[in-house]
Design a binder for these strands. Structure first.
Length: 269
DNA sequence: ATGGTTGCGTAGCAA
């Protein structure tokens, strides 16, 4: 079962790119982030026509996440637990159930983790955007811990806005104080791994520099000035089925591209 | 170089 994640940076602006990617790559499940629209404005029919069921948590102008599935899907969560007052559309979780012989269910979450920049205010204290990111990550660790008690196969896929280590950054010295690389951010990402989750791409590519995001600015794509911030984290039951993982750079090179490119895994049936 | 680009929405914020 192919499961992919892609921050599309506006589903409306990106619809032709998303349609051709779905038709060509044909993932069983696609987790999308940064839809930048409310649920009613999601181009539902255009995606359904490609054979996908759709689950959306939308928000005007900012954020927004979706799960597209070729298989039957039941939405389990539309917000990350742990903060009733959090109104940002950054989390959706569903159970995907392949029909037919031998298809086992997989729980899938589409995650748009807060960017967290700027990290500091003018007076030098932690900026609320940074503290929101860290608190959101604490909630994610707690939720992952709860999910692990269920002992089922699950995949937490999305834009984590975290470069796990310096090898995931084209110029680590420039990002030392960036929320994507700060020790506090990385410590929480490692906490997820220390629970027993497997970061799929790095597990199968233990060495080497790979990116999933290139800034629109300053010719970053042409210069390969990228970051690896989009990840799929697997429960032990999902990791046991991990057959392949990859980063598909093709969509990033097209006209009207998102600044992110899809990351994918293949799980044994 | 405190720059650069894209999207939303139509000014300025977010990334």
């Amino acid at each position: 079962m192919k499961i992919a994640t892609w921050n599309v940076n506006s589903i409306k602006a990106r619809l032709p790119r998303v349609q051709e990617w779905l038709a060509d790559f044909a993932p069983d499940v696609a987790c999308l982030q940064e839809l930048k629209c409310v649920e009613d404005a999601f181009p539902r029919m255009e995606i359904e026509d490609l054979g996908y069921n759709i689950a959306v948590v939308g928000q005007k102008t900012y954020n927004g996440v979706a799960i597209l599935s070729k298989h039957q899907m039941t939405v389990e969560m539309s917000i990350l637990p742990g903060d009733e007052g959090d109104e940002q559309a950054r989390y959706i979780e569903a159970v995907v159930e392949p029909s037919g012989e031998g298809g086992r269910p997989v729980r899938v979450a589409s995650i748009y983790l807060p960017n967290g920049n700027p990290t500091r205010t003018d007076d030098g204290s932690d900026h609320e955007k940074f503290t929101y990111k860290l608190a959101w990550m604490d909630r994610l660790v707690a939720h992952a811990r709860a999910l692990l008690r269920g002992e089922d196969a699950f995949v937490l896929a999305g834009d984590y806005n975290i470069c796990p280590t310096d090898i995931d950054v084209y110029a680590p010295e420039r990002f030392a104080d960036d929320a994507l690389c700060r020790p506090e951010s990385r410590a929480r990402f490692r906490a997820l791994l220390n629970l027993g989750l497997t970061e799929a791409f790095r597990a199968l590519n233990p060495q080497g520099q790979y990116f999933s995001y290139w800034d629109y600015k300053a010719g970053a794509w042409q210069k390969d000035n990228g970051l690896r911030i989009d990840h799929l984290l697997l429960s032990p039951q999902a990791a046991d089925r991990l057959d392949a993982a990859g980063i598909d750079k093709t969509p990033r090179g097209k006209e009207k591209a998102s600044d992110h490119t899809p990351v994918w895994i293949d799980l044994a049936a």
